[in-house]
Nucleic acid binder design. Structure first.
Length: 415
RNA sequence: CGGGGAGUGGCGCAGUCUGGUAGCGCGCGCGGUUUGGGACCGCGAGGUCGCAGGUUCGAAUCCUGUCUCCCCGACCA
């Protein structure tokens, strides 16, 4: 992609009405556009990052046998009345609307009910189980206060997986398998080091749920962390009984701010029972399916990764989720430089590496500043100097010094 | 929802207290000089001053109402 063709531009100033670092930088760099409070458009560069995150998640969900589907955004009140969750008292974040004929509808804040109803016709025997089904879908939640940029929106993207098991043992196995997949996801997204399994409230059906909390000042939760054991306890469930149960010592805990990037829940029969999701077991008896649900917020992750990695020059993306891997800056417009830069663009692209080629008639400082602000992990410069020496200038976003390399060396740095 | 702050060209801001018909920087267009960390000169385009009502000869400025945005708190299935 040529910068001259990209319709977004960077700005020298951050928006005045945002305080959250993630929103300020993502808007300044042209990754997102704020539509309303808590509602953000993903522009081309931002969408690439979001899609790259989704790709990592999909690969890991598919690797453990997850089957992707897409549930609807519009929700049928009758379905939710069956589980008692249509009532605003029970779920206070509903966006509700109406059909022309006055029938009420909702915009899905989560999807347990519709998932159960969509899958129910296909589950009748123990032979049909277990199942892992997931989707990546826009959720709508009427938060009283949106905040923290893309980390807490009213409209946001979520990956939600649902497990359907025959027995508690089977459920536990699935739960553990998904937990391990989550570790791999956060590892691949470059936040594995800062992300901790955290014990949180399990609701009515299990003692705990597990959150994946990433340490960042921008986070909304306070967690108590045992770094050596690599586990944490959410402030909301912290008490002596819980600590004893988890084998943790209060003195070895460290209180830190963290952002919830994933949450896994045991649901047991909470939704399957009222909605009649049952199967016939080996002995011919009807049993209720045991469920679990497992969420990751890709759009929130864009914000969390920004908060965690950005520096004073702008965004910083890990290789595998960057919108482009290489920022190719052409300095000068001599014919030889133009030709060399065009060739370099083609050569790197031919390696299967995505390049953002700054072919603009702009001064070096502006190109370097944009390369930094956009957070592209590798920068390559073609100029009269490099052409003269038959080399390319290479620098990582996170390093201060550049070096001259030949194409073969560059190739090994990029692949 | 309670408390606090703010809405003025695309972006960042001044002007509001003390009413007199809107200004600066960036960006944008044209011309020229420039070219290794956001260059410079000249010319130019661009604004219902959030919205509605009121006071006044006259309102960005005063009054009333309303909408929106941000922050703190509460809330977070």
């Amino acid at each position: 992609m040529r910068v001259s063709q990209l319709f977004t531009k960077t700005s020298k100033t951050a928006p005045a009405d945002e305080i959250a670092k993630n929103a300020r930088l993502l808007i300044q760099a042209g990754y997102i556009h704020k539509e309303m409070a808590g509602v953000y458009t993903f522009l081309p560069l931002g969408l690439r990052v979001l899609e790259n995150i989704c790709t990592v998640i999909r690969e890991e969900m598919n690797a453990i046998g997850g089957q992707e589907l897409k549930l609807t955004t519009l929700q049928d009140p009758e379905l939710w009345k069956a589980t008692g969750r249509w009532d605003d008292e029970a779920v206070d974040v509903w966006f509700k609307t109406k059909l022309k004929n006055d029938t009420e509808l909702g915009l899905g804040p989560t999807h347990e009910e519709p998932l159960v109803r969509a899958i129910q016709p296909f589950i009748s025997s123990y032979k049909d189980l277990p199942v892992l089904a997931y989707q990546i879908q826009t959720k709508f939640r009427n938060e009283t206060r949106a905040k923290s940029g893309v980390m807490r929106g009213r409209e946001f993207l979520m990956k939600d997986m649902y497990s359907l098991a025959r027995t508690e043992e089977e459920h536990d196995e699935l739960y553990e398998k998904i937990k391990q997949a989550y570790y791999r996801v956060f590892e691949r997204l470059g936040i594995g080091e800062q992300t901790f399994l955290t014990f949180a409230s399990g609701g009515m059906f299990s003692q705990y749920s597990h959150e994946f909390q990433t340490i960042t000042e921008a986070g909304e939760d306070t967690i108590y962390l045992d770094r050596a054991k690599k586990i944490a306890v959410n402030e909301e469930v912290l008490n002596d009984e819980v600590l004893a149960d988890l084998g943790l010592n209060r003195d070895s805990l460290e209180a830190v701010q963290a952002a919830e990037v994933g949450n896994i829940f045991t649901l047991k029969e909470k939704f399957s029972k009222p909605l009649g999701l049952t199967f016939t077991d080996e002995t011919g008896h009807e049993q209720t399916v045991l469920m679990g649900c497992y969420g990751i917020g890709p759009s929130r992750l864009v914000g969390v990764i920004t908060e965690l990695m950005a520096d004073d020059k702008g965004l910083v993306w890990p290789d595998n989720i960057a919108p482009f891997k290489v920022y190719l800056a052409r300095l000068g417009d001599d014919e030889t430089v133009m030709k060399a830069a065009d060739e370099t663009y083609e050569n790197i692209t031919a390696l299967g590496v995505e390049v953002l080629y700054d072919d603009r008639d702009a001064r070096p400082g502006e190109k370097f500043a944009d390369a930094d602000l956009l957070g592209i992990p590798h920068r390559v410069v073609v100029s009269a100097k490099t052409v003269e020496q038959g080399k390319l200038e290479y620098k990582r976003r996170t390093e201060a010094e550049s070096s001259l390399v030949d194409f073969e060396a560059l190739k090994s740095l990029l692949t």
